[in-house]
Amino acid sequence: MNYFIVGDVHGCFYTLKKILKHWKKGEEQLIFVGDYINKGRNSKDVVFHIRKLCETYPDTVCIKGNHEYKMVKYIRENTQPSQMKDNYSRTLKYYSMKLLHQDIEWMHCLPLYYENDVIYVSHAGVNWLNFRKFSTESSWCVLRYRGKLKRMNKLQVIGHTPTESGKPEYDKKRNVLNIDTGAGNYEHLSAIRINKHGKLVDTFMERVVDEDKYE
């Protein structure tokens, strides 16, 4: 089976629907690299849609991003909106209390990585020292690391840090493919198709649509 892997969505619901038109439902495993919320204006709709996809296609994998991790912390620690970063407090304005706590529980349970024989998917990647990679409060963690990554004997797919080119970028030396192309900055949302051997087959990009932007 091939894999269809989607980069950081950041609340861009209408753009997400466009990128998913390239996904071959039932033929490819759907994987998300995390950061479903904040920055774009439709975080609640993104989470609702992805959760529905998980119900319909149980092999779908949703990796936890640093934005989900931080939102869970804010809510569980009863942080006041005035004390949150603007992205988070703005997202919460669109939530009812009941739906919020359902989504927070979902975010809390998301895995930090997905691995099989040919791919390793996490939000930010495994640091080159393999150091504190799952220590969630650490800057070395796969949630938030920015820097040189570990080379693995399989393709490592990440998001988190928008690429300089604005396109998915492959680091041959490290065997890492970064697919964050700046949806959170209202640039592009990207997805890739990886075959069963862990090789890149196709790349897809959709420019963020106006409906996903704050005015």
Rank of each mutant, 00 (worst) to 15 (best):
N2V: 03
I5L: 05
I5Q: 01
G7I: 01
V9Q: 02
H10W: 09
C12S: 14
F13N: 05
Y14P: 00
L16E: 05
L16N: 06
K17L: 14
E27H: 11
E28A: 05
F32Y: 07
F32L: 03
V33E: 00
V33T: 03
V33P: 08
D35Y: 13
D35E: 03
D35A: 04
Y36K: 02
I37L: 13
K39N: 03
G40V: 02
G40A: 07
R41Q: 13
N42H: 05
F48H: 15
F48A: 15
I50S: 08
I50Q: 11
K52L: 08
K52D: 15
K52V: 14
K52N: 14
L53F: 06
L53W: 03
C54S: 14
E55S: 13
T60W: 00
K64C: 03
K70A: 10
K70H: 05
V72A: 10
V72R: 06
Y74R: 10
R76Y: 11
E77N: 15
P81Q: 10
S82F: 10
Q83R: 15
Q83H: 15
D86W: 07
N87P: 05
T91E: 12
L92R: 04
K93T: 13
Y94M: 09
Y94P: 09
Y94G: 06
Y95N: 00
Y95G: 02
M97T: 14
L99R: 03
L99C: 08
H101V: 02
H101C: 07
Q102Y: 14
Q102W: 14
D103F: 10
W106T: 05
M107R: 04
M107N: 09
